[in-house]
Simulated assay, not measured.
Amino acid sequence: MNDAPHILLLGGTSETAPLAVKLATAGYQVLVSTATDAALAVGDHPAIHRRCGRLDRDQLAALIDQERMMAVIDATHPYARDVHQAARDAATHSQRPYLRYQRQALVEASGDVVTALDHDEAAQLACADGRPVLLTTGSRHLGPYVAAAQHNGIALYARMLNHPEAVAACEQAGLADNGRIFGRGPFSLEQNRALIRQYHIGVLVTKDSGRAGGVAEKLAAARLEQCRVIVVQRPDETTENTFDDMDRLVAALQQCCPVSTVSKIGEMK
């Protein structure tokens, strides 16, 4: 095997490829781990490889030990709280450095933007308006929105990635077929505007997924189409090892795990 330090990069977002390439270019062997096998660019470099499938804390720790990983970099979605905790715990258990890349926040509350603490509150706020709701937060928290929409007798549309897990989530939550909009973002301003007009949307629900997540285009489209916006707040998880700049993250990794380091697990324990 290559003597370059092996790094576990937890990805799945649009930043996965550029961050993986930066790491590989800096001299690391990079294993990109994603929860699903959905199509995703991970970077065109011989030192980058990919695995797919969800892992809990113990499975992550086992992977770290088996593949002789020298560090864990968490570049998963800003709202993937359970993944962040599992990754931190696994790194701690395996005595490896944990570094997290987090997109810069973009949304601030204003006259036409209301923030909600969680999905339950967002669902109540969105469905109390009496107008059709467009949900753009993915498929993992459909339940509260479907229940609130049915209770208030309003139309609910959810835009999400076309993947078997998303379809299963729709079935479990009871979201009707005509309420499912499949597509892969980020979406342009005009794509968002067209969707809002097509379904006569009055309320748009989003997360603050940052500029890379297409939030700016959603907010601009909603403003132009006179939609109310509900934003689910980010989990408050920022730590000293959290970076919103990839170059700073790579520099920090080079401090704790120099490329000259040979992966000798026995010396780390």
Rank of each mutant, 00 (worst) to 15 (best):
N2I: 08
D3Y: 04
P5L: 02
H6K: 14
H6D: 06
E15W: 09
A35R: 14
V42F: 11
R51A: 07
R57Q: 15
D58T: 10
L60P: 01
D65T: 14
R68E: 09
R68C: 07
A71W: 07
Y79I: 04
D82N: 14
Q85I: 09
Q95T: 14
S110C: 04
V114N: 03
A116H: 00
D118A: 03
D120W: 01
Q124A: 09
A126T: 02
R131C: 02
R131M: 07
V133D: 10
L135V: 01
T136N: 00
S139E: 13
L142S: 05
Y145L: 09
A148Y: 01
H151T: 15
E165Q: 05
A166W: 03
A166H: 05
A168Q: 13
C170W: 03
C170F: 13
Q172R: 13
G174T: 07
G179I: 15
F182E: 14
F182H: 15
R184C: 08
R184W: 06
F187K: 07
F187E: 00
L189K: 00
A194H: 11
L195R: 14
I196H: 05
R197L: 08
R197I: 06
Q198T: 09
Y199K: 13
V203A: 00
K207D: 04
S209V: 02
E217H: 12
L224W: 05
R228H: 14
V231G: 00
Q233H: 03
P235N: 15
T238Y: 11
T238C: 13
T238F: 06
T239R: 03
F243D: 06
D245H: 14
L249W: 08
V250T: 12
V250H: 06
Q255H: 10
C256N: 10
V259Q: 07
K264Y: 04
E267P: 05
M268R: 15
K269T: 15
